[in-house]
């Protein structure tokens, strides 16, 4: 089984469309949760050329010059981009004509919370140096409930930043109870915490920091469809199998007579095949089994009876 899976993933890696998968540096990538135990054996479907007009491959690019960012969770965003060669060359010429040189490609991550961003008015920003072939990146912004924009650009030797593309704005999810109170639905602070605690199934008497931690822990545990959706996942991990052996016995009793005869086995009428043969298959437990087989001719005159006796003993 393990061998088989290994083979499969190899196949995937050689697929051409996998080339679009980003190259990333290890430390920037969020730890990958363990792969769920495979419950169904891998099965490659046959190629379905029926519908294929021509061989289809995902393009390496769409001729765009852009960067898109997505929210992964309150602390991480995902970015992917495509920079057109002509755009990059144009910028490089600009850098050169300013008597400067490219030092590196970076992602510049801006905190633009409540700001109409113009390139210079972010609260803070930080840079991520890009490795050569990357076309996507997981960015640890580390702050829930803030708005973000990411530029991809070039930092020069002199330390100037030249923009290649600017992303959409996203806001990381808020994590924790809101400070905004609703005048119409006010109650004492501790009452809010009580409701909050009860809602999280934490019991009573928990403070804000404690509850926040508990919520986080709870979310990190997998009490979620992530583990339990149908079709693709596991309900619980299969018990670890080390070395094992299973032995079972089955008994096949078979025979033949005139095709129009009536046959019974252990008193149960048997269906004969057109050529007069018959067979029965039994799971054979330990102990003795007598299996009387009786055949009666179609006219009811002749009867034959044969009784195999079988003993199984497992040691």
């Amino acid at each position: 089984m393990a061998k088989r899976r290994e083979k499969k993933s190899k196949v995937l890696k050689t697929k051409k469309d996998r080339a679009v998968v980003a190259v990333r540096s290890e430390q920037e990538v969020a730890p990958m949760p363990k792969q769920a135990e495979e419950t169904v054996k891998p099965f490659d479907i046959k190629e379905q050329n029926v519908m294929d007009k021509k061989e289809f491959r995902f393009p390496h690019g769409y001729g765009d010059n852009r960067i898109i960012i997505l929210i992964r969770d309150p602390w991480w965003i995902f970015s992917y981009w495509e920079v057109r060669r002509d755009k990059e060359e144009e910028i490089l010429r600009k850098i050169e004509s300013a008597g400067d040189q490219k030092q590196k490609s970076v992602l510049r991550v801006y905190d633009v919370t409540d700001v109409h961003f113009n390139g210079r008015n972010a609260h803070t920003y930080f840079d991520i140096d890009l490795a050569g072939l990357a076309n996507s990146w997981y960015i640890n912004v580390g702050k829930p409930d803030r708005a973000w924009i990411v530029d991809i650009g070039i930092v020069t030797k002199k330390g100037d930043f030249y923009l290649l593309a600017r992303s959409n704005v996203v806001k990381t999810p808020r994590f924790g109870m809101s400070d905004q109170l609703d005048a119409e639905w006010m109650m004492p602070e501790e009452e809010y915490w009580k409701m909050f605690s009860l809602s999280g199934g934490f019991g009573l008497g928990k403070g804000s920091v404690e509850v926040r931690e508990m919520v986080k822990r709870q979310l990190e545990e997998q009490i979620s469809s992530g583990a339990l959706s149908s079709g693709a996942s596991v309900f619980k991990a299969r018990a670890e199998r080390k070395f094992w052996l299973v032995v079972n016995c089955e008994l096949i009793v078979y025979g033949a007579t005139e095709p129009d005869a009536k046959v019974s086995m252990q008193g149960k009428p048997m269906q004969l095949r057109p050529d007069g043969t018959f067979s029965m298959r039994f799971a054979l437990p330990d102990g003795m089994q007598a299996i009387p087989v009786e055949a009666t001719s179609n006219d009811g005159i002749d009867t034959r009876r044969i009784t195999p006796i079988v003993t199984r003993k497992t040691e």
Binding site: V21, M32, P33, I71, R72, D73, L219, S224, A227
Partner: peptide
């Protein structure tokens, strides 16, 4: 913003194995 997926957000549908589909 929330989901009932793994860790409460989008991580299950956006990670190393499947993030290439979104572009």
């Amino acid at each position: 913003f929330s989901s009932w997926g793994y860790k409460g957000y989008s991580e299950f549908w956006l990670e190393g194995s499947n993030d290439w589909i979104y572009r």
